[in-house]
């Protein structure tokens, strides 16, 4: 029984069957990659996991509880953090403030009215945030305006914001899309480090096979809304069905 169990999930947009009978089980403390050609339904599946979309049928269980019908912030409070394809951070705020917000969310829940105490009197949360920034090598940037940083830094900040909450499951939506090779390698190293240091389950959606094969322990191949195969990276590499899905019948 994995930490994340997706059973018979269907999702239809008008005439398009985006997901058809998707079954997926992500085991605890592993890195599970979901790959597939464009339009395979990877992002739709991810959106069903975080509460942005509700599947037409089927069930999604996380840690023994159903996530269906819950809002994104409730699902985050259950222990799922999500990194977006384009980094989503609080651009008007400093790096430190960006880090403090998830700390507050973790400690105080989805709403708390602390209107009088100053933010910076919260030394405990501040230490937590600084420690996490240290871990991703961004401590020197803590007073920077986060919108003015490079894309790679924004990505690292977003990941730090997710990790500081100690999520049970980290969802990554094409974390290296549009990155230069060097940045991609940095991201891979960062993720490897995270995996070693923490008890964390990672589910990753990715186009870049280099990233997938360096990180994943299990791979699910999705094509036209249905899982084709699920196996270890070694077996996926030479799998005829996978080649077919990616390169077409003739190959």
């Amino acid at each position: 029984m994995g930490i994340l169990e997706v059973k018979d999930v269907n999702k239809r947009f008008g005439g398009l069957q985006a997901l058809g009978n998707v079954n997926l089980s992500v085991a605890e403390n592993t890195c599970h990659a979901i790959i597939g050609p464009n339009g395979a339904g990877k992002s739709t599946l991810l959106n069903c996991l975080v509460g942005k979309l509700i599947p037409d049928t089927g069930s999604v269980m996380f840690d023994g509880q159903s996530v269906l019908g819950r809002t994104p912030f409730e699902i985050n409070q259950m222990g799922i953090s999500r990194v977006f394809q384009t980094p989503e951070i609080f651009g008007d705020l400093t790096v430190m403030e960006n880090m403090l917000i998830p700390c507050f969310a973790k400690r105080d829940g989805s709403f708390a009215l602390h209107g009088i105490r100053s933010v910076f009197s919260e030394s405990g949360l501040r230490d937590q945030a600084e420690q996490m920034l240290e871990e991703v090598n961004m401590l020197d940037k803590r007073n920077m305006h986060s919108a003015s940083m490079s894309r790679g830094d924004k990505r690292r900040l977003e990941m730090a914001m997710c990790l500081v909450q100690n999520p049970k499951l980290l969802l990554l939506d094409e974390p290296t899309a549009g990155m230069a090779r060097a940045d991609t390698n940095n991201t891979i190293d960062l993720l490897k480090e995270i995996k070693e240091k923490r008890n964390i389950t990672i589910a990753i959606i990715e186009h870049d096979m280099h990233v997938v094969f360096s990180l994943a322990e299990r791979i699910t191949v999705l094509a036209q809304g249905t899982p084709l195969v699920e196996d270890t990276p070694e077996n996926i590499k030479g799998h005829p069905k996978v080649k077919e899905a990616y390169l077409g019948e003739a190959a």
Partner: peptide, 13 residues
């Protein structure tokens, strides 16, 4: 004001 989407996915309502 800055990013409601991120706020939602950070566990805040």
């Amino acid at each position: 004001k800055s990013n409601q989407q991120r706020l939602n996915y950070t566990g805040l309502n």
